[in-house]
Design a protein around this nucleic acid. Sequence first.
DNA 1: ATGAAAGCGCTAACAG
DNA 2: CTGTTAGCGCTTTCAT
Lengths: 337, 337
Amino acid sequence: MSSRLKDVAALAGVSIRTVSNVVSGSASVAEETRARVQRALDELGYRPNLAARNLRAGRTGLIGLAIPELHSPYFGELAGLIVEAARQRSWTVVIDQTFGDPDAERRLLDGTGGRLVDGLIISPWSLSPEELTAQARSVPVVLLGERHPHGLADRVAVDNVLAADEATTHLIGTGRRRIAAVGLQPHLRNGTAHQRLEGYRTALRRAGIEPDPRLERTVTTLHRSDGAEAMTALLEDGVRPDAVFAFSDELALGALHTAHRHGLRVPRDLAVVGFDGIEDALYANPALTTVAPDKRQIAERALQCLADRIYSPAAGVPPLDIVVPHRLEIRASSHAS
Amino acid sequence: MSSRLKDVAALAGVSIRTVSNVVSGSASVAEETRARVQRALDELGYRPNLAARNLRAGRTGLIGLAIPELHSPYFGELAGLIVEAARQRSWTVVIDQTFGDPDAERRLLDGTGGRLVDGLIISPWSLSPEELTAQARSVPVVLLGERHPHGLADRVAVDNVLAADEATTHLIGTGRRRIAAVGLQPHLRNGTAHQRLEGYRTALRRAGIEPDPRLERTVTTLHRSDGAEAMTALLEDGVRPDAVFAFSDELALGALHTAHRHGLRVPRDLAVVGFDGIEDALYANPALTTVAPDKRQIAERALQCLADRIYSPAAGVPPLDIVVPHRLEIRASSHAS
DNA sequence: ATGAAAGCGCTAACAG
DNA sequence: CTGTTAGCGCTTTCAT
């Protein structure tokens, strides 16, 4: 088995306390003693037991990251940035995938299953803002994406309404009139898709175009296959879109794929715009125009919020609602036809 | 602050022991007592302190997953599967990104920084097999991908030589003769790229084609941008490839992108095959042929190895070298020209 | 069926 | 500068 401070102390012929001091480097230790202890440390291959340290400290140095799924590019990229931002603050990240299961989201929020992490970053899919509010919270929480009406937790997100408006306005500016919206998710309580729809409709109306319900398409998930199916349905239903605004890049890539299969030329016959700014979008053929949230800043701000809550004294600070900037990356898929 | 067993016991008027029994549901408790304790539990919103439980148990229920980067699709997909497979075994995953830094890989393997996880799954990039062997190990380790010559840790991987041979043979079968290999990484000690190169050359020679060094291309990383650059270089160097076998799907997608830009038609003018079986490949335009490792099985087997090492009594079992199946997914990007 | 108490490995307050 | 010891919150052995 692995050795403990006691073993090292015995071997070096000093007290446990001295070994602890050498390990932590905190208090000063006589040079000769330190050398002897260090030798014992090396000989036994001592590794501190973090469970014990955590119990003692009352903190674990772990933060939870709860996202719907790790395999989708958006969440993969975001998770990578969060893990890195956490590491810079000497935190370690434990990852939970909720797959949009409302029970899983609830369980993580209310801490059933035990208190392990010092804080939680969660990107909720299935819980409504009201339910998010209702959940008891055992540690500081940061919400990604979802709005939190009564402000009981910090929140970091882009302005979805504005971003969708900009994307749609851009399409209108390239001469498109029959712009489909792909990505409605009425089965989820989550408000993100709704906000993007709102921005889309607002932009249309501003341009004097009345939103056509047949151009607004529901999807089950945000994956490429859903985008491909929605595109197929749009083409088969004969609603003749001249552009697609997809609520995720994956949906957009699926739509692009179907468009190619049907012999449509992008952007000549059909313009396509996505949302998320994933790496794939840049290398798609043609390169995909996308609304790119500043993911690095999302990660950074979320961790900053957690750090403030965890380390700062009182719980006096009111919940923050942090709006992170986004950029409309215009690429070949939405050039003028 | 959060409440402890002691607080609940005091409120319910029972001993700590009884509360613990109710929480764990292990020993039998009188129905009336249980109800009273449960009420106290609910009232105080008791959440077990996992650090304490871990210290007591001598295990943390955490396993480490160390991968070069989370944002790349292959590792994102793999990490998602591993997190899910771990959850089914009641383990939680903490993620480390090494970015291929040899020091980071060493540190994780030898447990410097303390013992937190019960086991470690690591996908090494920069350490040579020899170095991997030399590292002291504080917990069971499973290596993904890299061969471990002296067999001091379990290893799970596809047969890279065979898989590369198959991919190359497939390209030869479509009539290609000038097949470029993109993805050599001589600056890394890791042997994966070398194995794929070996399979590639073997297939060429079997078909009577002498490998042309000018068709073998080095990359810095396995990202799309590297694939795009390598493709540009291939075209500018005038070596006129009629096919590209890329050692990752990302490289292949980058190459595909560049090919399109240069007006080449895939697969007519150029066939492209990737490696990894990522989701993007299926939705690329044209859909990308790829060597797809059974990632679910990689995750499953890796966790099985850890479980055996962690729970099984003696360390008698010799290290396993598990070869996971792969499939050559033939798609439009490599159809006959 | 329940209570009392030891002890997991570590840090830090207290003593010397 | 270094030794002794309490105690973090939990599980479990030993008693009752």
